[in-house]
Design a protein around this nucleic acid. Sequence first.
DNA 1: CCCATATTCCCCACTTTTCCCCACACGGCA
DNA 2: TGCCGTGTGGGGAAAAGTGGGGAATATGGG
Lengths: 149, 149
Amino acid sequence: MSSFKGRYSYSVDNKGRIAIPAKVRKNVSPDANDTFIVTRGYEQCLFLYPQDEWAKVEDSIRGLSPSNPQHRFFVRTLLQWAIDCQLDSQARLSIPQDLLKFAGIEDEVLILGVLERIEIWNPKIYEAYMNNQPATYETVAEVVLKPTP
Amino acid sequence: MSSFKGRYSYSVDNKGRIAIPAKVRKNVSPDANDTFIVTRGYEQCLFLYPQDEWAKVEDSIRGLSPSNPQHRFFVRTLLQWAIDCQLDSQARLSIPQDLLKFAGIEDEVLILGVLERIEIWNPKIYEAYMNNQPATYETVAEVVLKPTP
DNA sequence: CCCATATTCCCCACTTTTCCCCACACGGCA
DNA sequence: TGCCGTGTGGGGAAAAGTGGGGAATATGGG
């Protein structure tokens, strides 16, 4: 099980390539074969899953029935944004234009480690998102990290 | 086991040929011998199965009973539209006119990877289909893309 | 039965994109 | 100071996407 963490500011070169921080790479299982699955995240960001972590997601939708209309919609919606990406010899990923465009990414990115996945943000959008949160870190923590009775 | 994914915009040339995206081809088993079975899909789109995946579909309908009228109807409908297609040397498929017409395909297509099959849509029809669904990407992703507790 | 037209399939050609490799600057560390 | 590991940039070869010509095959009407 992966456990990514940390926050990194990186640049996007003019070929659309994004380097994955060395500290993050050290946490990627060798099973992932330098392959990541990039897809849309919740807010306006991209999710990056090492191949072995993505396999768990895929297993959970494989059981759905192709003959059920709702299941079909479900699988299409989820998979249509997902793309395989391989690290090049400099440990960078070439991310397709449409995904970069979705996340509003241009020449700078913020890379966040979030346990089993990695998130990629346009720094300005991330800041705006953070400023829009009604709660503070402290008030949320109080609710989330409450000891189970 | 195939695991197609992603969404690709491609053009149909004036001979009715459709290229299969390289990223999709990389996920096709060599067992498929560059051969695909094209048939009518659910909703107004075409289903494309690599030969090896189609064999599994056939196995599953082999178990249906010839004496059950509903089974007979289902099997006939599925099989009568199914046709073999081989990739040409440029990795394109020539899809019969009547199937293209069924899917309302003209000069542009959307190709979706959906686990064991590939779907081919008229982009406008796909958009209309998606707009008619009550759920969104977020509601779908919420179910699947969350950490295992 | 034969010919004219259409369709299918197999090449070849061009443009764009992607990928692979090399180069360099910077910083930590022995 | 010299040596890695790391982040950044770019050139060039290879692959991918697109289009079209022309021979073999099929279709249909006289």
